[in-house]
Amino acid sequence: MHIAHIVASGMGGIRTSGDLVAWMQMTHKMKIFEAKHYVADKLGVDIIDLTNEEVMRQLREQLEIGVITSIAGSPKGLRAKLKIAELLEIKINSVNLFKSQIT
């Protein structure tokens, strides 16, 4: 049933920018419009393109923040989250732990 909600109302996760908007709601308690606005600004795209696969697929690869398909050698997981934390200027606990271990 979650899948039905994702298709009907969701932002598309790492396929587009759903994870990025979710990070802003979680870390900065932003309402949906504010969170979308913030992310769109950081990405340099219009709000409507946050869920536009044709824009986001390429942009995500370019920014090295993880894409939905599996590309050997391309950042995903913690490496992508490291980039996301920098891009959005937010604190992500798992990233902070990782950083504390490599410095």
């Binding site: 979650h2 109302s9 969701g10 932002m11 759903g18 908007v21 979710a22 949906i32 409507i48 869920t51």
Partner: peptide, 21 residues
């Protein structure tokens, strides 16, 4: 049969154990 929100009005879908299902 199914409907969806208009483009640009999508929201974040958090889950409470979906992958568990």
């Amino acid at each position: 049969r199914t409907v969806s929100v208009s483009a640009g009005e999508e929201v974040v879908v958090t889950d409470d154990g979906c992958s568990m299902s």
